[in-house]
Amino acid sequence: MSRTQRRAPARGVEWEFDRVSLSRELSRSAVTRLLVERAEHGGWELDRVRITADGTRRVVLRRKIIRQVRPTFLL
């Protein structure tokens, strides 16, 4: 249940965002483990958490987009 989008660059940094909705049935420790797993293996960091009136957690994760410059070969 995630959706990835990109936001316009701000001061030379471009971010990729991933929105995740988590059920209210998940415990706080389970949500923490899930987010830590995504951070360690996907390079994501926490941007925002919103808990709705029905208890659903809406989490926004972000990570930097690193662009590589193609090398120019001189012959």
Rank of each mutant, 00 (worst) to 15 (best):
M1F: 07
M1H: 09
T4F: 07
T4E: 14
T4H: 01
T4G: 07
Q5P: 05
Q5W: 10
Q5R: 11
Q5C: 11
Q5H: 13
R6V: 13
R6Q: 11
R7Y: 09
R7D: 15
R7S: 15
A8Y: 06
P9M: 08
P9A: 14
P9H: 06
R11I: 03
G12V: 02
V13P: 07
E14C: 08
E14K: 02
E14A: 01
W15P: 03
W15K: 03
E16K: 00
E16H: 06
F17N: 01
D18G: 02
D18I: 00
D18P: 02
D18V: 01
V20T: 00
S21A: 15
L22I: 10
L22C: 07
L22E: 03
S23L: 07
S23W: 07
R24L: 13
R24H: 12
E25C: 10
E25S: 15
L26R: 04
L26D: 01
L26I: 05
L26Y: 09
L26Q: 12
S27F: 11
R28C: 05
S29A: 10
S29H: 02
A30Q: 15
A30R: 07
A30W: 02
A30K: 01
A30C: 01
V31F: 08
R33C: 02
R33E: 13
R33A: 14
R33H: 11
R33I: 04
R33W: 03
L34N: 04
L34P: 01
L35E: 03
V36P: 00
V36D: 06
V36L: 04
R38L: 12
R38A: 09
R38Q: 14
R38S: 03
A39E: 11
A39W: 04
E40R: 10
E40H: 02
H41N: 11
H41D: 12
G42D: 09
G42W: 01
G43M: 03
G43W: 00
W44D: 02
W44I: 00
W44G: 00
W44S: 03
E45H: 06
E45N: 06
L46C: 06
L46W: 04
L46I: 04
L46Q: 05
R48S: 10
R48L: 10
R48T: 09
R48Y: 09
R48H: 11
R48E: 15
V49C: 07
I51D: 06
A53K: 10
D54F: 05
D54Q: 08
D54G: 07
D54I: 08
D54T: 09
T56S: 14
T56K: 11
T56N: 06
T56W: 05
R57S: 15
R57G: 13
R57C: 13
R58D: 13
R58T: 05
R58E: 15
V59H: 06
V59Q: 08
V59E: 04
V59C: 12
V60A: 07
V60S: 04
R62E: 13
R62F: 07
R63A: 03
R63Y: 00
K64M: 14
K64S: 11
K64E: 15
K64C: 12
I65R: 13
I65S: 08
I65L: 13
I66D: 14
R67M: 00
R67T: 10
Q68D: 13
Q68E: 15
Q68W: 10
V69W: 07
R70C: 02
R70D: 12
P71D: 10
P71Q: 12
P71A: 11
T72D: 14
T72N: 09
F73H: 03
L75P: 12
L75F: 08
L75Y: 04
